[in-house]
Amino acid sequence: METEVEGLLRRLETLRDAFAEPPTAAFLTKLDEVAEFDPQWHALASAARSATTESLADEWMRLFEGPGRFPVVLFGSYYLDEEQLMGPSTLGVLDAYSRWGLEKSESTPADHLAYELGFLGFLSDRCETAESPEERERARRERDEFVTKYVANWVPAVAENMEAHSETAYFRELARLLRGEIAALTAS
């Protein structure tokens, strides 16, 4: 049986990969595998299967990258710091990564949704697997604070924008899963 944390990590990983780049064939294969064990992901995998990789990539560009104006920005500071990148909230996120000895791998701002989902995965893991109770408690506090300060206050807006502007079931379904996962983390 998959443990609760294993399930959470798997969902966060899949969401992170879904928001990291336009869907690749490898990702869609992996998505199929996820959906095989988790009914919540059936609709997303089904939507992916009914589309082509190219059409999903086109829609990705239109929603998230443009070029030019596009309807869904995937950076927290856009929502929290007056529509600019690298605002105070970005530095807050970066500080949070630093507190746990983590650094990002690319020149993309630290508050990209994909980074934040990965960090939530890291913290969720530490909540369960850190050696000392103090460290597990510290991870729980950090996760709660991170969700409150840097995730829950803007990610629902991303989901809303995706639902409003997407022309494909895939991205609407992805928005639903994202919203649900963040809501669950917020509730926890």
């Binding site: 990590l9 746990w100 650094e103 980074y115 890291f122 369960e128």
Partner: peptide, 26 residues
């Protein structure tokens, strides 16, 4: 992905990886 939760560190691999910093953690 990983053999057990303890070593299942997806955040450290792939695009948007968060890797262990070379400098010490704050």
């Amino acid at each position: 992905s990983a053999t057990a939760a303890a070593t299942y560190s997806f955040w450290g691999i792939g695009r948007y990886a968060l890797a262990q910093s070379r400098s010490s953690a704050i």
